[in-house]
Simulated scan of single mutants.
Amino acid sequence: MLNDTGKHTLYAILGYIGISAVGYILLKQFGAPFVAHQPLVEHASAADRFWDLLAASLWCLVLIGIIVLITRGYRNKQLMSPGRESSKKEIYLLLGYMAFAQLLGFGLGKLLGFHAISFHLAGSIYGTHEHLKLAEMLVWSFYNFIMYAVLPVLYFTLKKGYTLSQLNIVSNQNVLRDTIIIIIIIVIESIVQLGGLSDALLSLTPRQIIFGGFAAFIFNLFGTAIPTAVFLFAILYPRFKAVANSAVIPIVLGGLTYTALHFFDSWMVFSSPGAFLASFSALFMQYFMPGVVKSVLTDRTGNPWVHMWAYHVFVPHVIIDTPHFVDSFDIR
């Protein structure tokens, strides 16, 4: 007989398989409108997109196995959170705030003549490959940094009386151990992403890699990496753990929340119900498993900053987005 953890793991796997099957049907039925602006892939079938997404998800499972292996036997302090009842109230507050911030970002981006502001800059993953203006990049990064990092920390420290340690912003974990984990994941992910996802970085000149990579690092650090680490994994995720009487449910909720934070990414298509459903299916398959990987890294290390350095700002964003910044800034 399976214990509760085994049951929850089985339910999560079956749920993912079911949702993926529905996604395959939707993509077959309605196509893949979210790749319409990418010349290199616009002729690929929706089925090809599905299998690419599924392959990426399966790799995430392998990566989770590696993370569990390299953190086996480690003893870390638990992520700090208030009691169960307080955590439950704060989860509702944080999720409501997240929905508000996403809707406000959508409206603000459109009002300024930009793309909707979500957790990925326009042109990352899928979508437009047009030259983005510096103003849009600055607004995107400042908005996310302020809304998802600065304001939540100010609210919980000044209004609720938490310390930075109680919010997991300051970590007292083993720095050397965490650094080793970060380096291992970066090396593995860099090889996989350059070999299987995109090797466009390798076609750039050293000057383009240096300046484009620096721009990709800085904008993504403030625009998505720090906001994700602070809002989701330092503040919200520990409250999931406090409320859920399960080792698996918080990890699943972390993946779902990470997906929701990208709801208005520029490549999402809302022009018709079919286009939306197909895009939403891809959104889930694109972000859920990476969100699960980030949750596992946070859970296993007790440090919400490890995933940021190991599995976000350098890989994938510097590796994948550097050519986009080189193009936008016309770096020669």
Rank of each mutant, 00 (worst) to 15 (best):
L204A: 11
G195K: 06
L283C: 03
G255T: 07
G254I: 05
F284V: 11
L232T: 10
A244K: 13
S266F: 07
Q193A: 13
D199K: 08
R207F: 13
Q286W: 06
L236C: 04
T224H: 12
G212H: 12
L277E: 00
Y287C: 11
Q193N: 14
D199F: 09
L256N: 04
L201F: 14
L256P: 00
F219Y: 15
P304N: 08
M289H: 03
I235Y: 02
H317N: 14
W267D: 01
V293Q: 01
Y237W: 08
F288M: 04
L261G: 11
A215F: 15
A278R: 08
F231S: 02
V243Q: 01
G274F: 12
A234I: 03
V192R: 15
G255W: 00
A225Q: 04
T228P: 01
A215L: 15
I235Q: 00
V313I: 15
M289I: 07
L197A: 10
G213M: 06
Q193E: 13
V252S: 01
S190K: 00
L204V: 07
I209G: 03
V306R: 04
H312I: 08
F214W: 11
L202P: 02
G223M: 09
P316K: 05
L197N: 08
Q208A: 13
L232V: 11
T301D: 06
L236S: 01
V192M: 12
F222K: 07
F217C: 08
H317G: 06
F222Y: 15
L197R: 12
S272Y: 15
P304A: 09
F211S: 09
S295I: 11
R300H: 08
P290Q: 10
R300M: 10
D265C: 09
L297D: 01
Y287M: 10
I191L: 15
S203N: 10
F219N: 02
G195M: 10
S272A: 13
G302Q: 02
Y311M: 10
P227V: 09
T298H: 02
R207V: 10
D265N: 14
F233Q: 02
I226Y: 05
T205E: 03
Y258G: 11
F240V: 04
I210M: 14
L194E: 04
F280N: 14
E189T: 14
P304I: 01
F211E: 09
T205I: 09
Q208Y: 07
F284T: 02
F280D: 12
L283A: 05
S203L: 08
G255I: 01
M308V: 13
T228I: 13
V293D: 00
T224D: 14
S279E: 06
R300P: 09
T259H: 03
F276I: 09
V230W: 00
M268R: 05
A234T: 07
A225H: 06
I249A: 12
P227Q: 07
F211C: 05
V243S: 00
Q208T: 07
E189K: 09
P304R: 05
V293G: 02
T205L: 11
M289Y: 07
Y287H: 12
L261R: 03
S203V: 05
K294C: 12
N220G: 13
T257D: 01
A234W: 02
A234D: 05
S295V: 12
G223I: 04
F264L: 08
Q193D: 09
G212M: 13
I235M: 06
N245L: 15
L297R: 05
Y237V: 01
L277D: 00
F280H: 14
T257F: 12
S203F: 11
T205N: 04
A282I: 06
